[in-house]
Design a protein around this nucleic acid. Structure first.
Lengths: 238, 238
DNA sequence: CGATTCATTGAGCGGTATCAAGACGAGTGG
DNA sequence: CCACTCGTCTTGATACCGCTCAATGAATCG
């Protein structure tokens, strides 16, 4: 964990073109670099931020994975979402300054932390930063709607099929061209997120296997029949 | 339906302080006014935009109400959300230029239509516009997460209770101080949105009444016990 | 290797969908 | 004012899906 020294620290990053860093040239880069802590390490189960705490930073995930969750009442927590390398955390909290959720590392992770208030001051001098921000927010909102649609499906199998497709899509830039997918979360976390029981998720996976749409080995999934999976995902009968 | 002539057309609007119009002074207002169609009328069941069509406008609802929905496969459509006066439509579609959903009026409505690409060109000269946009996107994302949490609740009663609380909160500026709430959508639309059957929603309402948390008369709901409703909303046992 | 965690599979029960019928309100016309 | 219609909401009976509890199997790690 340290501040960025030169633009080259960021140019080598595989998420450079999606990051605020891409907006700056060599001359102006030092202004951005000062507000970023690069390559902070988080061990599994460590919290990035906590529900109700002050939300002053945006986080770019460079490797690993996170989940966000909130505790509504005693004993019942709900997982809001999963976040992959290249994605941003804190978008929904930072404008209001209060964290809506707790973010926890699901595996050993590296993140860059950007001071939001300082970033805002740069928007006046770099209009492209506003364009990027709105594009990122629009994308996040679109994914959120798609996820909402996934979760409100009537049957367990269609929810799981849809979830697999969504994670496949989102992990696009991380995967090779193959139809392999690695799910970073446990069955219980996935079930919680989808509003199901862990056992039901297992059974849904078993069903997708028996239909010949996928093969699986614990958290590794291989898609055999993309169209079949999409059919299952969009059909109420499954 | 017409273009705006002077800033006074907007200053009298009850949503002025939440609208892009608030960013401009009298001098600069004409630049904004040219890109807005004010007070367009939509009858019940008319579409504001359609899934897959080009998304070039943002819409501010002045009166009435809308629902957004998408058709995934033949015969199965899903309702993504409901929109109240003062809220914006098109946020998630406009950055990509393609409408993710179809928006349909649930009652006779008035909307203002803002040309998004033209609005973007104004951001360079009016940094406050970017601030407002990000605040609006952040808020929309936060609501989306809250709605997602509502829908993923395990039991029908808690989903309905949570939905009532959310609509109560969102309609805050529209209501008087009382605990009355008017739901703009039919039971079936609500059920579709929540991933339930219409009959189940009816039964859930009946349960909330029998518990003494609310009274109801068709689409009119009166909240008697806010804490009871919140308890029901956050508890898996209901 | 034992301990732990996670994933799977089975048996029984409860909640929700489905199908069907009835109640209620708004609107229409006699 | 009443009878009629239509759409929406409610209520009831039954079947099915998914949750719960419990046991087993598989993978990881000290």
């Amino acid at each position: 964990m340290s501040n960025i020294k030169t633009i080259n620290d960021c140019k080598n990053c595989s998420f450079f073109n999606r990051c605020a860093a891409s907006v700056f040239d060599e001359e102006s880069f030092h202004r951005f670099g000062k507000m970023v802590d690069i390559d902070k390490e988080y061990a599994t189960n460590m919290d990035l931020f906590q529900q109700g705490g002050s939300a002053r930073y945006l986080y770019v995930i460079k490797s690993g994975g996170f989940k966000t969750h909130s505790s509504l009442s005693i004993g019942s927590a709900h997982i809001h979402g999963f976040y992959l390398p290249g994605e941003l955390l804190g978008l929904e909290s930072v404008p209001r300054g209060v964290s809506l959720t707790t973010a926890t590392a699901t595996e050993k992770s590296l993140v860059c932390r950007i001071n939001y208030m300082q970033l805002v001051t740069l928007r006046k001098d770099f209009p492209a930063l506003s364009d990027l921000a709105l594009s990122i927010y629009g994308q996040a909102l679109a994914w959120s709607q798609i996820m909402l649609e996934c979760i409100s499906r009537p049957s367990a199998a269609s929810r799981v099929a849809c979830f697999v497709l969504i994670m496949f899509e989102r992990s696009g830039s991380l995967r090779s061209k193959s139809n392999d997918l690695y799910l970073t979360m446990s069955r219980n976390d996935m079930a919680n997120h989808l509003g199901l029981a862990g056992e039901t998720v297992s059974r849904a996976f078993a069903k997708l296997v028996s239909l010949g749409y996928i093969t699986k080995n614990r958290r590794h999934v291989h898609i055999l029949d993309m169209e079949g999976l999409q059919l299952c995902s969009s059909n109420t009968a499954f």
